[in-house]
Simulated assay, not measured.
Amino acid sequence: MGQPVIIQIENIYYPILAIVGVPANLMTIVILSRGSYGLSKCITRYLVAMAAADLLVLIFEVILYEIKDAYFPYSFLNYTPICSLNLALLFASVDCSVWLTVAFTFDRFVAVCCQRLQTKYCTEKTAAVVIVMVCSLSILESVPIYFVYEPREIIDNVPWSCYVKSGFYTLPMWVAFLWLETILTPFVPFMLIVLLNALTIRHIILANRLRRGLLGNKNSENHDDPEMENRKKSIILLLAISGSFILLWIVTFISYICVQFTDTQFLEANYNSSFTIMELSGYMLRSLSCCTNTFIYAVSQSKFRDELKNMIKRPLALITCLFK
């Protein structure tokens, strides 16, 4: 009997995602680290940290979990202690990626809507402190994940693979942890990003109307306004990143809600179940969110696009010279 369709799709999807996503995030980190394409150092710090977190998600979830299980099921990485450690790091990297997106969204909210706080909060130093705090708390939150799993099977006295302990969904301690994990990721980030974006958009619309009124309703439409153009670029970047996050996380968000309020459980082996198909589809979309920011920058930022083209052209030119 062949593999379920959803598993066949995963076996093709995840290698392609790794091939595209890892180089894309590496190039993004290099380009942004140069700081040569017009964004403030504060924004650049957040974007570099987000790209690094996305890269870690691709490593721990896509390569060391999904691809490893599909193509190297009996490698040393499948020893239960190593598998449990990888899953803990996987959750930590996902939490870090999510909360850095929230931190970036909040930073832009402060920059646009809180002029008095902007000069103190929207700085390179504050961004660095926030990034370190987010990453540290994400790691601490994910430590219990290591103890959630037990061996799926014992072969020659060696524990293999990871299986969620039977008491995870019944013992009060683990039930409370699952609730906490669900609330912190993705429920609260999801709500915060939607709320902060709504408030930011509302403020920009009102500010633009006021500015047009001050400049004159008739004349302002016929002249370029640098400040309004900067606001427009800022809001496009913010909405593209946040909107992409919301769209690609919505299926995982729904599956988390289903587990909390129904009798369903994560990672059930019934691949004919509509919930299992939805859950696995959500993980694929969630992983895709780790590749989209590079393409968002390329579309919305002309200087980033130019830098990206140059990075791609250099190795191609070198290869061309070698074959001449």
Results as ranks from 00 to 15, higher is better:
Leu32His: 00
Asn293Phe: 11
Asn197Asp: 11
Asp263Thr: 13
Thr200Ile: 04
Pro159Lys: 03
Phe323Ser: 13
Ala111Pro: 00
Pro226Tyr: 05
Val129Glu: 00
Leu117Glu: 04
Ala24Val: 00
Cys113Ile: 04
Cys96Leu: 12
Leu100Asn: 03
Leu238Gly: 03
Ser93Pro: 09
Asp263Tyr: 01
Val57Leu: 06
Ile201Gln: 00
Arg211Val: 00
Cys122Ile: 05
Leu199Glu: 06
Leu55Met: 14
Glu221Met: 12
Pro226Val: 06
Lys324Gln: 14
Leu199Cys: 11
Leu214Cys: 09
Gly167Glu: 11
Leu180Arg: 13
Ile235Phe: 03
Cys114His: 10
Thr200Gln: 07
Thr320Cys: 14
Ala88Ile: 08
Val48Asp: 07
Gln8Ala: 12
Ile205Glu: 11
Pro73Asn: 11
Leu322Gly: 13
Leu267Asn: 12
Tyr46Asn: 12
Thr28His: 07
Pro15Ala: 09
Ser234Leu: 15
Pro144Asp: 05
Leu39Asp: 04
Asn217Trp: 15
Val164Leu: 14
Asp107Cys: 15
Tyr121Phe: 15
Val143Pro: 14
Ala240Leu: 12
His223Ser: 13
Leu214Trp: 02
Tyr121Thr: 09
Val299Ala: 15
Thr200Ser: 08
Phe168Gln: 07
Ile257Thr: 13
Ile296Glu: 06
Gly21Met: 09
Tyr79Thr: 11
Ile29Gly: 06
Thr200Tyr: 02
Tyr121Glu: 02
Glu181Thr: 13
Ser166Leu: 15
Ile319Gln: 12
Thr200Trp: 03
Lys165Pro: 02
Leu77Glu: 03
Ser287Gln: 06
Leu39Met: 15
Arg211Ala: 05
Tyr65Val: 04
Ser40Gln: 02
Ile312Pro: 10
Leu285Asn: 01
Ile154Asn: 09
Glu307His: 14
Ile312Gly: 08
Ala127Glu: 07
Glu221Pro: 00
Phe245Gln: 00
Thr119Trp: 01
Gln3Glu: 14
Ile235Pro: 02
Val130Thr: 09
Glu61Thr: 11
Lys41Met: 10
Leu195Gln: 01
Met1Pro: 05
Leu32Val: 05
Val164Gly: 07
Leu318Ser: 12
Ser300Ile: 02
Leu89Glu: 02
Leu100Gln: 10
Val148Met: 14
Arg202Leu: 02
Arg286Gly: 15
Ala51Cys: 05
Glu66Gly: 03
Leu137Tyr: 04
Leu171Arg: 14
Asn208Cys: 12
Ser273Lys: 08
Met278Cys: 07
Ala127Pro: 11
Ser244Trp: 05
Pro186Lys: 03
Arg116Pro: 00
Ser220Val: 14
Val110Phe: 01
Lys313Ser: 09
Ile319Thr: 05
Ile29Trp: 09
Ile201Lys: 04
Glu141Gly: 13
Pro186Glu: 06
Val20Ala: 10
Asn11Lys: 12
